[in-house]
Every structure is written in C-alpha cells, then in structure tokens.
Simulated scan of single mutants.
Amino acid sequence: MSAIARQSSSTGAVTDPIRVMVVDDSVVIRGLVGRWLDEEPNLAVVASHRNGRLAVDDVLRSNPDVVILDIEMPDMDGLTALPLLLEKKRNLVVVVASTLTRRNAEISLKALSLGAADYVPKPETNSGVTTSPEFRRELIEKVLNLGQRARSRMAPGSSPAAPRPGAMPQRGIALGAPAAQAAKPHRAASFTLRSYGNVKPRVLAIGSSTGGPQALNTLFGEIGSSIGQVPVVLTQHMPPTFTAILAEHLTKAAGRPASEGKDGEVLVPGHIYVAPGGRHMILAKSGSDVVVRLTDGPPVNFCKPAVDPLFKSVVEIYGTATLGVILTGMGSDGAEGVRQIGQVGGSVIAQDEETSVVWGMPGAAAHTGMCSDVLPLNDIGRKVSKILLGGRP
C-alpha cells in the first residue's frame, strides 16, 4: 500500500489522496503551505522544491497530480518551468501562485495560455501569507477541485476528448464549487432547454471564472465584428490588477475597446466593460442613459466581483432584450441571474461540459432550465454573432 494512502474512518476504505508538489523559493512558504495541505484528509504533499529546475527533474519520480508553482524563483522561474512540467507529465494540473503586481499578473495570464489550470493571488510577504485565511481557503479549494476533476477525467471508463482548436488545454481545470460537484459528471439528458427570446438583444452579458481568460479570448475573437450595436458587460472572477490586463487582452482579441468599468460611465455600443477585481459591477438608469455602478458590498457566492448582481441589474434594464452567456468556471455564480433572464423572456447560452475547464457555473446555469442552448466553446461565438446580427438562432 502507498505510504500516503489513507483510510476512511466511516467506511474503512483506503483512499488515495491527491498528490501535491509545492514549488516556492521561500522555505517559510513551502513549510506553511505543506502543513496546510497535509492537514486535509484528501491531500498529500509528495514533494517540495525551491526552484523550477528541481521540480522538473523530480516530477516523474514524485508523480504529483497538482503542482503549486511560484512565479519568481532563482535558477529556473515558474514560467520557464511550466511547459517543461506539462511536457513531462500529461494531465498534470499546475496552479500558479503570484503576488498582485502588474508584472506577475501579466505572467500569470501568460501561464494560463501555456496550460496552467489556474492562479491564486499570494500575499506579498511571508507574514501576509501566514495571516491570510483567504489565501489558505482559496489555495486548498483549488487544489482539491482541480485534482479531483483531473482524476475524474482520467478515471477508467472515461474518455477525455482531444482538445479542439481554441478550446482550453485539458491539462488545466478550475475555481469554486464543492469538490464532489467538480468531479461529478453532468449529462445533457438531465436538463431541459427553452426557446430563444423573440426580441433582438440590446446587450450582451457574460459571466466566467476559471478557464475564463482562454475561453473569453476565443469567444471575442469570433464576435468582435458583431458587437458594434450593443454594449458588452462581463464579470470574470479575478483579483484587482488582473482584470485591467484581461481587458487589454480582450481589446486585441475583439478588435474593440475593452476596459474596466468605471462608476458612472455611460454604456455605449461596441464597448466591452469588465468588472474590476474586488468590486461588484452593476448597471443602472441615469435619465435616458444606462451607466455602470461599482459597489463595495460583501462577496456574492463567495465572489467579488460576482456574476449574479450584474445579470440581475441587466434584466431590470433590458428585460427580454438580454442575451447572456455563461462560460467555464466552478461554483454556481450566475445561475440565479440566468433564471431571471429566462423568466423575463431573454436568452442564455451556456458552455458545454466537454469544452469547459470545469462545468460548475455553466452546469448550474443549464440546470435552471432557463438556457436556450448548451454549446461547445467554438460554437458559441458563431451563435452569438448570428443572434446579434438579427438572424434566427
């Protein structure tokens, strides 16, 4: 029996914990994170290294399911080590840990494009890490969910599809739902679809989480030429700094201006408004205009920004002329907003399970019974463009 196999006290069955490698140049961080993970019954630290080179050399021997990878390290940094780790072990899940500097945010988004599953913002000091319950919670949540999701895709009898062009790498998985939900497959037969609304949309509202940056780049590459007549509002679960850089990337992908929403800003067609990290973004009426409002209320669905407040505010203003899209992500944020869009006669498209990094948010949306379609990522852009241009869905 493996030295790290553990016995369930309730059933007596032997379980195999998710194997984790911690890679960080700080001995304090390695020790602290290692203790956190080892205190979890479904996790086991199998290796700990101070730089990327040692991690690459050891990954086949220690055989982790998940690697927590620091960005800035001597000898070999995280961005250099990432493709080497993924090349050595197929379906390895890599979670990038970085402080919230602009440079590290850019590197983290680059890491996602290279196949990292997700990122976790790290406090800037060792003392900050020690005293941050949010960092600990988020790190453990992501490792559990991503590790279980990866194992479920590789379980006997499962048949992971080869990645489609433009789909997220199958190495990467995501943030937020309970571990059991992340690993549980959903089947199309378990949800129903409703008809598309019969009113041409006057707004496009999008929600996404883990896997979202890659999916959004794909989507906006398809719909950029079609959004000239409507404003686009977007909540992507991201911390401050990251959302500003995401907007820059979407400007390039769409060929349209994208920026973080500013309080009081008037919505104009053809512009993409991204909810800034750490603030909820909603819409409100100001005379004959629709404006952005930023609020500093508590997290919704453990998220800030959250999708539900945005979607609910969109429904109040645009009603049946709302087109919503829910992309990859853990948890259920956005499901209540989707329900409200459907109830007023608007339309919602959710990303399908096969092309989602994690089918938490889109799965929850699909199970409201208020979606008009559940589509592969590469089909969503064409469908959205057709609808926005006045064609029949």
Rank of each mutant, 00 (worst) to 15 (best):
N63R: 11
I68C: 11
S98L: 10
D58I: 10
M76Q: 11
N63E: 13
V96F: 07
M76L: 09
K88T: 08
S48M: 01
P64Y: 13
I71R: 06
L54F: 13
G78L: 00
P83A: 05
L79A: 12
E87C: 08
D75S: 09
E87I: 02
S62Y: 08
V67D: 00
I71D: 02
P83T: 00
L54A: 12
L82V: 03
N63V: 12
D77N: 15
L100K: 02
S98I: 05
V96L: 07
V67K: 03
L84D: 10
P83M: 01
R61F: 11
S98C: 04
V45H: 05
H49E: 10
L54D: 07
I71V: 15
K89F: 02
R102F: 09
K89M: 10
G52C: 03
V46A: 05
N91E: 14
T99P: 09
K88S: 14
N63Q: 10
I71G: 06
T80P: 03
T101K: 04
R61K: 13
N63T: 14
L82W: 10
T80D: 12
L54Y: 00
P64S: 13
K89Q: 14
V95H: 10
V95M: 14
R50N: 08
S98Y: 11
P74T: 04
I68L: 14
L92I: 02
A81N: 07
A55L: 04
D75I: 15
G52Q: 10
P83G: 01
N42F: 08
L85D: 06
L54H: 06
T101F: 04
R53V: 09
R90S: 12
P83D: 05
M76Y: 05
M76N: 00
P83I: 00
D75N: 12
L79E: 06
A97I: 06
S62V: 15
R90D: 14
A44V: 14
L82I: 02
N91Q: 09
D65E: 11
